[in-house]
């Protein structure tokens, strides 16, 4: 194999726990290898150039949602971003805005998602608690199951939250991830909650009526989820509760 080209990484560095540290951009050089992803590159940089570099990866296969960061202006999953995508060989990495910064490229999306789930009660509220696991299960429309799975594909990577200007301005805004999940349970025939119940949770300025439809969520979602359609659906549904 021929010698790979030189890549230049501009990486945001800041350790908020270090008393005298200030946010800065640091340049690193690295030789590209075939099939190199940002995951591979960052690990190489850490092993060979700066062992203190912080970032998060878990599955490294685009499944777990740990590694979202802003790459050349677009928030996305770093593990499945090939460096070959950047013809100039210049790659700027920033942590996702809108989340608590742990250090460098590592942000606390987990804490955010858990708090959101608690606040919006993002779990199935079954219609009956009297369920026997020994008996035949209740049937469900196969198409409904398939539709629900489509909405379940969210990996809580936080990209939609960071790409949402509304969320940046209004800290309490639930973001696309929250609304998508509400829409998922709203469409689930097994869930006991009514449109009125959901209105109490997201029928406000922090929910569907605060959303300005800027669609940073839809345009950046690594799982190509239908945010625009789902949030519009939810908004219509919530507005319909005004009429009886």
């Amino acid at each position: 194999m021929s010698q790979g080209r030189q890549l230049t990484f501009n990486i945001f560095r800041y350790d908020p726990q270090e008393p005298n540290d200030k946010p800065k951009m640091v340049r690193y050089q690295l030789t590209e290898t075939p099939g190199m992803t940002v995951f591979i590159a960052l690990n190489k940089l850490r092993e060979e150039q700066d062992t203190s570099l912080q970032f998060d990866f878990v599955c490294r296969a685009g499944i777990c949602g740990s590694c979202a960061m802003v790459i050349n202006g677009f928030p996305t999953l770093a593990c499945r971003t090939l460096t070959a995508k950047y013809p100039k060989g210049e790659i700027t990495l920033m942590p996702l805005p809108g989340f608590e910064l742990i250090g460098d490229l590592s942000v606390n999306t987990g804490k955010f998602m858990r708090e959101l789930a608690e606040r919006l009660k993002l779990w199935l509220h079954p219609k009956s608690n009297d369920i026997s696991v020994h008996r035949l299960e209740d049937p469900m429309d196969p198409d409904e199951a398939a539709r629900l799975y489509e909405l379940e594909r969210c990996v809580e990577c936080g990209v939609c939250v960071s790409a949402c200007a509304t969320k940046q301005m209004r800290e309490t805004f639930v973001g696309a991830v929250g609304m998508m999940k509400i829409a998922r349970f709203e469409m689930d025939s097994r869930d006991a909650r009514t449109a009125e119940d959901f209105y109490h949770v997201i029928g406000n300025q922090d929910g569907v009526f605060g959303c300005m439809t800027l669609l940073g969520c839809q345009d950046n979602c690594p799982k190509d989820l239908p945010h625009m359609q789902q949030i519009a659906y939810l908004r219509r549904k919530m507005a319909m509760t005004l009429i009886r």
Partner: peptide, 21 residues
């Protein structure tokens, strides 16, 4: 605070519909 947050986000993230807004 809101204006600063917006400006910062728009500096980091490149999104045309947000610029449109």
């Amino acid at each position: 605070r809101q204006q600063r947050a917006l400006r910062q986000q728009m500096q980091v993230i490149n999104h045309s519909d947000t610029r449109l807004w």
